[in-house]
């Protein structure tokens, strides 16, 4: 086991009924790397992220974090171990303010238990204020500082995605799984997003980026894994993948001829 490997996916397989959504996929991610997972619609990217995050348990294979198997660990335990994520549909908490969303993200840093909360002890109050400021910091980090008190549901879709990222960052992940963060963003928002994701490696956060937008992928990815019909079709540096005939075939189908 390489000391620089932070996460390893080993021969993972997942079935929905009879459908093989992820078929014997393996790859590894190095510390601080940005790895991109690409593939046509229905390739199994989201399913694989769900397996890594512990939402789905694989039929075979395992996910290792720093050499230790995560099998059997539920999603919230994995968050504690440092796996954060965003969702394809953003899934911000709609009934909360933007800031409260991020405050939920700070959950793992808090100590307040039910009893402390019920009695609102001084240290609980202090923690609340700390969390408040901490959340504000993350919100500023993604550029939503001024929106703090708006209802999350009222944000435009692009900003909801940014909010979801801020929320995930607040959980202090070491590995961040991003599911199509650029979908539905305009040009300016996209370049801001690329900037943002670049800054993550300064914070020593490893990212696994699922994305359809090739421009975004090519700007960010240091390593690319291509899925198709649940199988790993290819992997390599962006340049390798771009030139790989099998990838071109899978993406463009029979039109190339």
């Amino acid at each position: 086991m390489d000391a620089n490997t932070i996460l390893e996916v080993q021969r993972v397989r997942h079935l929905f009924g009879g459908l093989v959504a992820v078929d014997d996929v393996s790859f590894r991610v190095y510390v601080n790397q940005c790895l991109s997972l690409i593939g046509p619609n229905g390739a199994g990217k989201t399913t694989l992220l769900n397996v890594i995050a512990g939402v789905l348990s694989p039929a075979a294979g395992q996910v290792l974090m720093e050499g230790k198997s995560l099998n059997g660990q539920p999603a919230h335990e994995r968050a504690r171990l440092g796996i954060g994520r965003t969702f394809q549909q953003a899934l911000v908490f709609k009934d909360m303010s933007v800031l409260e969303n991020v405050m939920v993200g700070c959950h793992l840093q808090g100590q307040t238990r039910l009893i402390d909360a019920a009695l609102r002890l001084p240290r609980t109050r202090r923690e609340e204020e700390d969390v408040y400021l901490e959340a504000l910091r993350f919100l500023n980090f993604v550029g939503l500082g001024t929106k703090a008190e708006q209802m999350a549901a009222n944000l435009p879709f692009g900003q909801q995605r940014l909010l979801a990222i801020a929320r995930a960052l607040a959980s202090k992940p070491r590995v961040l799984l991003l599911d199509e963060p650029a979908a539905g963003l305009n040009r300016i928002e996209k370049s801001a997003l690329v900037d943002l994701i670049r800054r993550l490696s300064d914070m020593s956060i490893t990212t696994i980026l699922v994305e359809h937008d090739m421009e975004v992928v090519m700007q960010l990815a240091e390593w690319i894994v291509v899925l198709d019909h649940g199988k790993r079709l290819a992997q390599g540096t962006p340049d390798d993948v771009r030139r790989n005939p099998a990838v071109i075939e899978a993406y463009l189908g029979t039109e190339v001829e």
Binding site: V92, V104, H107, R120
Partner: peptide, 26 residues
């Protein structure tokens, strides 16, 4: 007190999306 605390926020998060709540360690 419960509602306006870490605990209460976690509850509201659960009500909105159990999946998202779990992804944040709840």
């Amino acid at each position: 007190n419960i509602v306006n605390s870490r605990f209460g926020r976690a509850l509201r998060a659960i009500r909105d999306s159990q999946e998202a709540a779990a992804s944040l360690g709840i």
